[in-house]
């Protein structure tokens, strides 16, 4: 009985001992192009898990220290207003020799903690800012060039130009070529109309008639010319 309670006491003692196994987690924020010094970083904190139990401030030199982290698995994150940092997985281990060790691993947000990543990072942790938040969107500014380079505007301008220029172009064009062009256009529009209205047969016949007409025109080239001259 006495032995039993002694064992219990020992267990309790051991438990207490395990409970007091704790280590300071140290690290440093490395200044880089994204965040070059403590002033631009502003007030920042490094926390384990939710930060309700273990947290440390980032000092002016970029160092941080989280005191007395007991044995366990934690997520280390940096709380900063303007910058994003990687999260790390921290395992505070209780090695058989009684010493307490720290293992640091990379961690991707939202992924399960197990299995742990194979990559081990050095213990005095080094972290660097990944990205600076950009809160603002640039307002759309107006400039005439961008307005003119808009395809719709360009089409409109070209169409307007064509409207004005066509009569003059028509005037300068060879009358015979014009006649041919007109015929071609009428023919094409006939085919298009027929196909558009779903009348394939009519469409094909329109092509056929066009071919016939062409042949007829070749046979009697005089008539067209005569009509034209009448104008």
């Amino acid at each position: 009985m006495v032995f039993h309670s002694l064992q219990g006491l020992l267990c309790l003692l051991l438990l207490c001992a395990v409970g007091t196994f704790a280590i300071d987690i140290q690290g440093r924020i490395v200044w880089n192009d994204v965040c070059s010094n403590a002033t631009t970083l502003g007030r920042a904190k490094v926390v384990l898990d939710s930060g309700s139990q273990h947290a440390g401030a980032v000092t002016a030199s970029g160092n941080f220290k989280i005191f007395d982290a007991p044995v366990g698995t934690y997520l280390l994150s940096v709380i900063s207003h303007d910058y994003t940092f990687d999260q790390l997985r921290i395992d505070v281990l209780d090695s058989p020799e009684g010493a307490v060790g720290v293992e640091v691993r990379p961690y991707i947000a939202g992924t399960p903690l197990n299995p742990p990543a194979d990559v081990l990072l050095p213990h005095p942790i080094t972290l660097a800012a990944k990205q600076k938040f950009s809160y603002f969107t640039a307002p759309e500014s107006f400039n005439v060039l961008s307005m003119l380079s808009n395809p719709m505007t360009m089409m409109m301008v070209v169409a307007g130009f064509m409207m004005l220029a066509t009569p003059y172009m028509m005037k300068n064009i060879d009358p015979e070529a014009l006649e041919d062009f007109k015929k071609e256009q009428a023919k094409m529009s006939g085919v298009q109309n027929a196909i558009a209205s779903g009348d394939f047969k009519g469409g094909i016949s329109a092509i056929m008639t066009a071919a016939e007409e062409q042949a007829a025109a070749r046979a009697a080239p005089r008539t067209g010319k005569g009509r034209k001259s009448k104008r």
Partner: peptide, 17 residues
């Protein structure tokens, strides 16, 4: 809320808000 499954012995999941 904050999910801290590790404290209940399950490290399978993920911790976080």
């Amino acid at each position: 809320y904050y999910e801290s499954e590790v404290s209940s012995g399950n490290v399978q999941g993920t911790k976080g808000y």
